[in-house]
Design a protein around this nucleic acid. Structure first.
Length: 367
RNA sequence: GCGAGCGUAGCCAAGUGGUUAAGGCAGUGGUUUGUGGUACCACCAUCCCGCGGGUUCGAGUCCCGUCGUUCGCC
């Protein structure tokens, strides 16, 4: 109330570190644990904001890197900011572009100053620094902005990871200095690869800055899922109780349950929308390829227990037909369902935590 | 009726004498984790190239016949 970014933990699980909380932002609350859909412009590519709101999504992700290239933060600013430009009235989080440097570009040069790499779009050189990333994110105007970090690949040697994490910490200082807008919360990002002592070092350095929220980054870059869990279990206890904790890029049902059990609050992942565009639906904890033969004459709803528009209106056979025909509507309908599915999954976990039945209901995912 | 061409997997189609017959679509599975905008990977003609003969050490590939088909001429 006093601070636009307060976080309150409402219920703690008696058996695990899981917690149900509320994160306040200038554009509304985020009830955690929560899955946040992610997309280039947070429109998730094939879903309208109205459809997105219906999925139960509260906060959505937009992308600094892509918006910088197209249309450019200047235009977003002239439009009145990201919320107006894309017509999403709820909370928005922008990623810093650090991960895109790692994930999209082969030709890159990283030094203490920043990163230089070729745009995969047209080949021209792009220079990103902590200051530049924050300047762009200030212009975009999301509720939460992310520190510009260096995400080391997996596998990577200890030396490489250690260098990246120290650089990330030094960059965080510069991000904080560059940050001009108090109505945007700057989150720090824990790095350190799969080296737990480096992770701890990173987390301890970050919390010195007393930021409004913390993220664990550099996971789900190819390492085995057990290692993600190990990292989360080691780091979460070091993060302040009264700040939201965001596990970047995760993910799957199991990874979310395990991370929530360890005390994480927020998740984002391309899985629901990318899977949808590849004809896969998330149903009851499983992944189904709707183009498979067995769905051609299946005239039942995708998930009879799902309240989403897709499940309420169409059959598996019809979705299979749309996807086999590469009809654009197929991607939209399955995206709506998949996002709804993961958002509802985290909502059910939240409810279970509140009623003290988290372990009872979701314990089978915990190991 | 005459002349010319063509007949290769469900569809389109390369190959014109020499081991296991390109490729595409369709089909059947799989992959996808802080999104390079519908991608990628695997499998998919084991007596088989319309059918029947022939030439040749060897024929989808050459020759003859036949059936089908396309175009042109009458």
């Amino acid at each position: 109330m006093s601070h636009p970014f307060s976080f309150e933990c409402q219920t703690c699980c008696p058996h695990t570190k899981a917690r149900a909380g509320v994160f306040h932002t200038p554009h509304g609350i985020v009830e955690t644990p929560r899955f946040m859909p992610v997309g280039t412009l947070a429109n998730v590519k094939t879903v309208t904001p109205a459809q997105l709101a219906e999925t139960g999504a509260q906060m959505v992700l937009a992308n600094t890197y892509h918006l910088h290239l197209q249309p450019g933060e200047g235009i977003v600013q002239k439009a009145g900011g990201l919320h107006k430009f894309m017509n999403w009235q709820g909370p928005i989080l922008t990623d810093s572009g650090g991960f895109q440097v790692f994930s999209l570009s082969e030709l890159r040069e990283i030094n203490d100053e920043g990163v230089t790499f070729r745009s995969p779009r047209d080949g021209h050189f792009i220079h990103l620094t902590p200051e530049k990333s924050i300047e762009i994110q200030n212009a975009l105007g999301a509720d939460v902005i992310m520190a510009f970090d260096e995400c080391a690949p997996y596998p990577a040697s200890r030396d490489v990871v250690e260098t990246a994490l120290h650089r990330t910490t030094r960059w965080l200082e510069r991000c904080i200095k560059a940050h001009q807008r108090p109505n945007q919360a700057l989150f720090g990002i824990v790095q350190g690869g799969v080296y737990l002592d480096l992770r701890q070092l990173s987390a301890r350095s970050l919390i010195e800055f007393d930021l409004p929220g913390y993220a664990i980054g550099g996971v789900s870059v190819g390492e085995p899922p057990e290692l993600i869990q190990k990292i989360v279990e080691t780091i979460t206890p070091l993060l302040p109780l009264n700040k939201p904790r965001y596990l970047m890029g995760v993910g799957t049902y199991r990874e979310m349950v395990q991370a929530i059990g360890a005390g994480m609050d927020l998740f984002d992942c391309v899985i629901p929308t990318r899977l949808a565009r590849h004809a896969n639906a998330l149903v009851g904890g499983e992944r189904w390829n709707l183009r498979n033969q067995k769905f051609r004459e299946d005239f039942t709803p995708l998930d009879a227990t799902c309240p989403c528009y897709t499940c309420q209106s169409f059959t598996r056979a019809y979705l299979s037909h749309l996807l086999r025909s590469r009809e654009l509507l197929g991607y939209t309908l399955v995206s709506i369902h998949n996002i709804t599915e993961l958002v509802r999954f985290t909502q059910r976990i939240r409810a279970a935590i509140q009623t003290g039945t988290f372990v009872e209901q979701f314990g089978h995912w915990l190991n």
